[in-house]
Structures are given as C-alpha cells and as structure tokens.
Design a protein around this nucleic acid. Structure first.
Length: 966
RNA sequence: GCGGGGGUAGCAAAGUCUGGUCAAAUGCGCAGGACUUAAGAUCCUGUCUCUUAGUGAGUUCGUGGGUUCGAAUCCCUCCCCCCGCACCA
C-alpha cells in the first residue's frame, strides 16, 4: 500500500474541507481541547505524537458526536534554550549542523537559524507540519508562540491581574545561577546546562569551630554538615593534609566580621550567598593538622586530623568527625589509631589519638550506641579505601538514624527527642547562638551551557507568585471534584500536587526570551509562569495571526473586557481603535469556547505544569471559565527506563518513523498497545504488526466488495446485527471515558472478527453489508483516519453512495432494538456444539461418523435454572437455596438438584447466561441441522432427552445439548 | 525524605474502583490444520497441569496472612520495580 500517498491525499482533503477550523455556533455544543505546548528548541519525537494522537482521537470522536470541536496548539520558547542553540549554530557547532542536515535542512536555512527568531520560527513551522503529517486536524491558524509581542501583552496582563489580587510577592530566594548568565534551570533535560542536570540543592549547616583570633577578629574552622543533630558526638575535625585552605573575611548574618577557614572552592561559592566575602590569606592543611579548635555543643577543644576523604568541592572541604554515627569518620580514626607510623608521619601524638573515643549520641532501631562501628564491622570495611562500602554504610545509618533515631541523654536540651525533630531544632539553636550558619550547596558540579560554573545565589528581592495562599489553594482543590481527571489516579495525585505547589519564583533577571515583568523590567517571566492561562489566548491569537489586531492594541482594557467582561466594548474599541464588532466577536468567542474541556499533557506535567495551570484559572477567571478536564498520558520509552528525549538522543525524526511504520499504524499502536496511562516501549516488531493490520483491513474490505452478495436475508443476519450493535455500543461507551484500548479492541479486532465470522458462516446479505460495512469504516476514523477515508471512498463508490468524508460524518448510531442477547447466544451455542463434536471425533478416534444425535436438555432443567437465577438475586447461601428449590415441584428431581446446586455455586459459568427454553433451543439446533450435516458429512438427528432414553441424555443441560456420535 | 504509580500466563497487556459467567479479554509469539507448485500473506484450531467421547478435576494473577458461601479483585504484613520533587510545555 502507498501509505504516504494516501496520507497526504486525505490530509489535504481535510484541510480543504476546513474540518479543523470551526465557526462559533451557539446552537451547537462546543468542545475545546489542547495539548500542553511543546518547547520550541528542536524536533518533536514519537513520544509527543503519542499524546497528540489521543487528543486528535478525542477531537474526532467529539466532532462525530455532534460537537463543535476546537483543537489548538502553540509553541513555547521562553527561556534560553533557543538562544543557546541558535548561538551554537552561529558558532557552526558541527554536531548540531550535522543533525539538522541529516533531517534535510538546507545549508541556507541553517545559516539563517543562527538568528533566534528564525530558529524558533523554523521549528514552529516544523511542528505544525508534523501535526498535519500525523493527520491531526486542528485550528492551526491560531498557533501561537510565547515570544511574540502579542503574547507578551497577554502575559503582562496576566501578571497585572495577579498583582491586582495581591498574589505577586517579593522575598529572598536561593537560585541556581550561572555566574555570568544568571538563573538557570537545573533539571535532567539540561536545557540550560552543559553538565550537572541531576544536581540538587543540599541544605547544609555550617558549624564554626573557634580557632583563636587573627588581627583581633574571631577566627573559625568552618565545617559543613547535613547532620547538625550529631554535633554532640564530635571528637575531632578532618581535613586534607595536602590541600591549601583559605582564610575568608566574612560578615555573616549575625553582622559581626569573622574569619573563616575553608577550601578556596567554598570561598567561591559562599560569596554568592553571604555579602562581603574576601579571601585574605592561605593556610595549608598541614599547618592546621594536630592543632585544636573549640567545638560548640561538646564544649571542648577537639583535634584537627588528616584524612583522605575531604573533597574541597564539597561543603567547606573540612568536616567534623562523629565516629559514633559516621562510618567514614570511624574508619578514618581507626586508620590513625592502629598506625603509630602514620601518626608520626603527620606529627601527631599517637597516645592522644588512641585516646579518642566515640561518643554515643543517637539510639536507632536495631543498633547499639555506636552504629557506625557496628556497620563497619558487619560490612567488613577495613580502611578509608573501601569507598563504595563506606557510602553504602553511610546511607544505611543515615536512613535508620533519621527515621528511628532518638537523641541520647547527653544531647542537652534535645535529649530524648526524635532525630527528625532534633535535626532542625539543633540547626536553629546553633545558628541562634552564633555557632552556625546556613549554606546551600549543589550535590554535583553544574556547568552552564556557556561554560561557566553554576552556583547557588541568594537573590534578595526575587518575584514570586504566592501559590502558598491557603484560601486560593483550598478553593482550587475543592474544584477538583468537579473536574474530569485522567487517569483516575490523578484525582488523588493532583490534589496533593496542588497543595504542595508553594510560592514560585516567577521571573528571572537577565536577558531571556519571554515577557518582561510589567512592574520590574529587569526581570523576565520564567517558563512555567508564562504558560498557565494561555489556552484562553487562543481566542485572541486567531485575530492577531490574521492581522486584524496589532500587539499594541492588546491593552489591559481589551483583555479586561474580552476575558472578564469588565468595561464596555465601545470604550475598548475607542481606546484601542479596534472595530467594535471585532471586540464583540472576541468576547463572544471567549464566552462560547471557554472553558477548556481538556488539557492533555505527558506525565511529567503532573507536578510542574498542571497545578499552576489550574491555579491561575481559579485566581483570575470566573468559575464558569475554570478548566473542565486534564488528561495525562504516559511516555514512549526508548528502552527500559529510558525516556525519549531530544537532548539525550535516541528519538527518531517524525517524518522518518511515520514513513517506516505508517501514520495509521503508529496511531493504532498508541491506541491499542496499552492503556494511555502506562509507559510503552517503542518496539519495531509491534509497530510493524500494526502497520500490517492496516494493510489487512484494506485487503479484507477489497475481499468483501468482491463477494457475490445476495438480496435475501440469511440466518446469520440477526446475529450479526445484534453483535455489531453490541460491539458498537461498547466502543462508544469506552470512548466516552477515553478508554482507547477498549474502543480500538472493539473496532479493529472484535468487529473485524464479526465480519469474518459472518462470511465464514455463509452470511451474504447485500443490504446488511451495505449498511454495516460503512459504519465499521466510520469508527476507524478515530484512530486510523487515513485508511478510514480511503476505505470509505472505496465503499461509497462501490455502493454508489454519495461522496462523504468520514471526518465529517456522525458516529454510527447504535441500534439498541437490534441487540438481542438470545440471538448472540444462539450462534455461540451452535459453535459450541460443532466444537464439541470435533473434540469427540478426535477423542473417540472416529474419522467419518455415520450419525450424530444432538439431544436437547430435559425440560425440568430449564425450570430449575430459571428458578435458580431468581433465587440467586435474593440469597447466596447454599442451604437457603436448596430449601427454596425443594419447596417447588422440582423436588422430584432432588437427587440431580442436590448435585447441581453446589457445583453451580462453585462455578458460576455452569449457569447458562441466557436461557432459551427447550422449544427454542430445539428449533435453533434444527435450523442449523443441515449446516452441521454438511460440515461433518453425515446424518444429524435432533431430539430431546424426553424422547430419547439414553445415559447421555441426562447429561444434557440448557445451552449444552448432549451429543452422541456413531 | 516527601508525594504518587505498579508487580497478571512465553512476551506485551486488559481485568482491580462496582468480589461471583475469570483458567482470566486482546495482540504478539509458538504448535497443528486449510489454501498454495512452494514460500509469504491470509483464514481456522489449539496454547497452565492432568484427565476425558466433549459438558471433568487440580493449581495459578509478587509474598504471607485475613474477611467472605465465594478473592486477580476488599483488608493487613513483607519483598521488588518505577516516576515526580520547583525557575525544565
């Protein structure tokens, strides 16, 4: 099959027919959906297409069920991703140029793309092309970008409104910042970074150990710790003998000038968090070794000792030693205590070292006073060189200590307190006494895209959106009950995400793409914060894109009127010089299309994008405009546990894969391979199977059309109509709740099977085929729209119907009156009989039977099952059931009844689903007598248990006649 | 740590909310058959174990308990896997 040809043929027809470009029509129910827009910084991949194809299937279904459907998309370019990549192109970055070229981008185009705007526009266009090539039908005329002047006006308005509601606040913030470029996003996508995307901020406590005075100023050895609660167990200090440390003149938060001794790396970090930091001198580790400093908490002098595990890049490069609870500390001490030689090398008093004893501080579950010693013994850790085991030991002790630990008696005011509680209290306590300070470090080295290091910086007046506002949060959480959230788990999930979502730094200093904060032009609104309320802007972008509205006309009054109905259209028209009818039109569009019915996005949006999306709506718009639904789709994985990602490679270009697997094949794969709420692996074999399925559908329809059909009815007709309508109903019901897997199962496998069975059993009614074949094909319009149109065209021609587009038709109506479970069961029953005969022939080793007797069940069994089913409605208790049955005239069969009841209770499948009755069953089997005779090439006699006295007759049961082969 | 999701037959994956037609849909794979000169494709049948002239029995849905006449489904224990955690749609 020429997939490519078929795809573009129908895509063009849909476009020409303006299927995706709806007109406002107040008499028709609307459905407005979007997918969360993608960052414009590279090609889209198969993961994006998964979610989008769900959105398109929903849109097509809603369109076919009488809705006016608006599906829109846009592109997000806020931040510096595009800038960085455009710059790379300007520098002729070989890898990137090569990547673009490999996807058919011309040299000329690449040249142009070193300009950021060109870069963004290129990909934006590319995205729309991808959507179209995947058969998504939407209103692409409304496509918008977050970096255009009109969008900026919208965001300015949004922030003015937030400010009006007093939801914008300023406070200090510790941001991850490039030392040159300012704030960056530290996250695994590494959009802003060249290294360190998985780094996290770690909250350290700096402990200051008194080390005399220098120039009359107090001097401290400064150590960084994550476990301030263990300070009562300090026995010594560790540093690296061979490293040169620095003396830092600093004015920490207590306002007094001090001198800190720490690594020079630390000096470089702390200057971004504490003002007035100056390196005034150097001091070697060897010069400090063996000296004493005064430790708070333990209130005495402790010795400074050398070790190999002090990394100048972590913390201050100096650590305090708590050998009772820190395995490395214990082992470090142990190494020295067993080696006089080593002590001598460092010029240490061996006896003094040997006298250092761990101090018990925490009692943890399953451990004694010295967990570190226990675990080192258990894991067989012998020296500092056992780095891996030490790490494991540290984690284990930290974990168990944190969760189960209780502070020992020697922990001053914290004695008896749980570690979870003592940790923060101890920290505050030490800070208050001036013995400690805060410091935020990064867990690994982070390097900006520009090549400069990323540091944690304190920003004093950072702008925040006050998502912590209790009333606002509660109002929004309460509203979740009225929303449709997919999957179900989102209901639980999402309210905690909304609750958890606290104040968000919403703007960055520096030169970024995006919108300048209206009340502080040094700040640019950050990427999450300018993509929350945007679905409503699709109502405006249409007219901007058409050139009917200029960005400067998008004034506060304009948005106030069209979104909030504040003021009058005349005033707005006057002030903006817009046509009053246009202002009116935009307002009416908003009133018609809003709220958004579905916002669809990948699972990564659950905690970062969707909460503020909802929160901004509830804060700024009237309740009637709050979003109605969120749909979260899961990922396409490259290999186990590896998400597809633009930056990490592995994702294949859309045009390439769609050619290889066909668009319909891929869309069917997405719909049918798994629930939308499970990650799937992109498996070639599977995809090719689905592609083959599309081809089979095509040849199956050809085959049907080539059949000689008759104008008379057949005995399979009623069955087919009933089964098809049942299936259609299941498909529709499932689609109403976005259960794509069930819907696609019905359409592509079950309905397919119904047709094959129908023809296999000599169904050949032309008018039936003429009615149902097109219906079946229409249902394919949701997931495999191209082949659906192709088949529809073919079938219309064949039956000389008028031309239609599946995309324009109504979803086939379920003919409830045709659904007849008795008839469906009947055909199954005949099938069962045939299967039983086959089994018997094999088991009895009869090759060509002379005669087959089919014996219909005794009449009383029908009565029994009828009664039994009635009783089951009332009671499930075996005793009650038996006594009830025995009060009827069935008691004459008490022996059989007593056997049947327990068996049927145990295995409910023994109870016939539908009871035909003996007369009907006999008639039915008789009507298929010839059919069976033909199949087994022998005489068939249909009789009843009453008329045929034979041991087998007693075995017959309703829906399961006895069979005797001779 | 905080928050969330999940473990189902050879594989993938429904079923779990609303307990009983669940030995468990569907697809793939595999086996046999039909068609074909043949292969492929397609179609039919089978695919937990045992048994049997079919409508029979047993053991299964991560582990171990419990509730119930009845549990893949409800409750508890434990084990394992995955995801999000903030200036990254």
């Amino acid at each position: 099959m020429e997939f490519k040809e078929i795809e573009s043929k129908w895509q063009k027809k849909w476009e020409d027919a303006k299927i995706g470009v709806p007109e406002r029509n107040e008499n028709k129910p609307k459905f407005f959906l979007i997918w969360a827009y993608a960052t414009v910084s590279g090609f889209q991949h198969t993961g994006h297409m998964r979610g989008y194809s769900y959105a398109d299937a929903i849109a097509r279904f809603k369109r076919m069920t009488g809705h006016n459907v608006l599906l829109c998309a846009g592109g997000h370019a806020t931040g510096n991703g595009a800038i960085a990549k455009a710059n790379k192109l300007a520098k002729k970055d070989a890898a990137m140029v090569e990547e673009l070229k490999s996807r058919g981008v011309t040299d000329e185009q690449i040249e142009k793309m070193s300009d950021v705007d060109e870069f963004i526009n290129f990909f934006a266009k590319n995205y729309v092309k991808d959507y179209q090539s995947f058969g998504f039908v939407g209103d692409w005329q409304r496509f918008m970008l977050t970096t255009t002047p009109d969008y900026n006006k919208f965001i300015e308005w949004q922030f003015k409104k937030l400010n009006e509601k007093e939801l914008i606040i300023q406070k200090p913030y510790f941001a991850n910042c490039c030392v040159v470029d300012g704030p960056v996003a530290v996250d695994p996508s590494e959009m802003d970074l060249s290294k360190g995307g998985t780094a996290e901020q770690t909250d350290c406590t700096l402990i200051k150990l008194d080390y005399g005075k220098e120039q009359g100023i107090s001097q401290y050895i400064v150590v960084a710790t994550l476990r301030p609660e263990t300070m009562y167990g300090q026995t010594n200090v560790w540093l690296d003998y061979d490293i040169e440390y620095v003396k830092i003149k600093i004015k920490p938060n207590n306002g007094k000038e001090e001198i800190w001794i720490a690594s020079s790396e630390f000096a470089d970090k702390i200057k971004y968090q504490i003002d007035e930091v100056k390196v005034i001198g150097k001091i070697k580790g060897s010069e400090l070794t063996g000296n004493y400093c005064y430790a708070p908490s333990v209130d005495r002098e402790i010795i400074i000792l050398p070790s190999k595990f002090c990394d100048p890049n972590i913390g201050t490069g100096i650590v305090t030693s708590v050998p009772s609870d820190a395995p490395a500390d214990y082992i470090g001490l142990h190494d020295l205590q067993v080696s006089e030689e080593l002590c001598k090398k460092y010029n240490l008093d061996f006896e003094a070292i040997k006298n250092i004893k761990p101090i018990p501080i925490i009692k943890s579950k399953g451990y004694g006073d010295f967990p570190a010693i226990e675990i080192c013994n258990r894991l067989g850790i012998k020296s500092q060189a056992d780095k891996e085991k030490l790490e494991e030991a540290k984690k284990e002790i930290y974990k168990i200590g944190f969760h189960t630990g209780v502070m020992h008696d020697n922990a001053g005011p914290f004695a008896g307190m749980k570690v979870t509680e003592a940790k923060d209290k101890m920290k505050e306590h030490l800070i208050q006494l001036g013995h400690a300070d805060k410091f935020i470090d990064l867990s690994e080295e982070v390097v900006c895209r520009c090549g400069n290091p990323v540091r944690v910086m304190r920003r004093d007046n950072a702008w925040f959106i006050k998502y912590s506002d209790e009333e606002w949060t509660q109002k929004s959480i309460k509203y979740l009950d009225e929303m449709e959230l997919y999957p179900d788990a989102m209901k639980e999930n999402f309210s905690s995400a909304v609750d958890w979502f606290s104040d968000r730094a919403c703007a960055r200093e520096g030169n970024w793409l995006g919108t300048k904060l209206p009340f502080d032009k040094n700040y640019t609104v950050e990427a999450i914060s300018d993509s929350t309320l945007y679905p409503i802007y699709y109502m405006v972008s249409k007219y901007v894109n058409e050139g009917l509205i200029k960005p400067e006309q998008l004034t506060e009054e304009f948005f106030d009127y069209v979104f909030l109905e504040r003021g009058t259209k005349e005033e707005v028209a006057n002030k903006t010089e817009l046509d009053v009818q246009l202002v009116d039109k935009v307002q009416k569009d908003v009133a018609y299309w809003y709220p958004l019915d579905i916002n669809l996005g990948g699972k990564e949006h659950r905690t970062v994008h969707f909460p503020p999306f909802l929160l901004n709506h509830t804060a700024l718009l009237p309740k009637k405009f709050w979003p109605k639904g969120i749909f979260v789709n899961f990922w396409v994985m490259q290999a186990p546990n590896q998400k597809l990602s633009k930056s990490k490679g592995g994702a294949q270009p859309i045009p390439g894969v769609s050619e290889k697997y066909s668009v319909d094949g891929m869309r069917l794969y997405y719909a049918n391979a798994a629930s939308p709420f499970a990650d799937i692996y992109f498996e070639e074999e599977s995809l090719l199977n689905y592609k083959a399925k599309i081809e089979k559908l095509n040849s199956f329809v050809d085959e049907i059309l080539s059949k000689e059909l008759s104008s008379s009815q057949g005995k399979m007709d009623a069955w087919f109509e009933s089964s098809f309508n049942s299936s259609l109903k299941r498909a529709k019901d499932a689609m109403e709740i976005n259960d794509f897997k069930t819907t696609s199962n019905e359409i592509y496998f079950n309905m397919n099977k119904l047709f094959t069975t129908y023809f296999a059993r000599e169904g050949n009614n032309k008018s039936l085929v003429q009615e149902y074949l097109p219906k079946w094909i229409q249902t394919m319009g949701l997931f495999t729209p191209h082949i659906a149109e192709e088949l529809n065209e073919k079938v219309n021609k064949f039956f000389e119907n008028k031309e239609t587009l599946v995309a324009n038709t109504s979803w086939p109506k379920v003919k409830e009156d045709k659904i007849n479970k008795e008839i469906e069961v009947s055909i199954e029953l005949i099938g069962e009989i045939k299967k039983d005969i086959k089994d018997i022939l094999v088991l009895a080793k009869i090759e060509s039977p002379n005669e087959i007797k089919i014996i219909i069940s005794p009449t009383w069994k029908y009565d029994f099952f009828k009664l039994f089913k009635e009783i089951l409605e009332e009671t499930q208790n075996p005793k009650d059931i038996i006594s009830k049955v025995m009060t009827t005239n069935l008691k004459q069969y008490s022996k059989d009844v007593m056997r049947l009841i327990p068996a049927c209770l145990k295995d409910r499948s023994k109870i016939p689903f539908v009871l035909l009755g003996d007369k009907k069953e006999e008639e039915l089997v008789n009507s298929f007598k010839e059919d069976i005779e033909q199949e087994f090439k022998c005489k068939v006699i249909v009789t009843t248990a009453k008329d045929f006295d034979h041991p087998k007759s007693g075995n017959a049961s309703p829906g399961k006649p006895a069979i005797l082969v001779e």
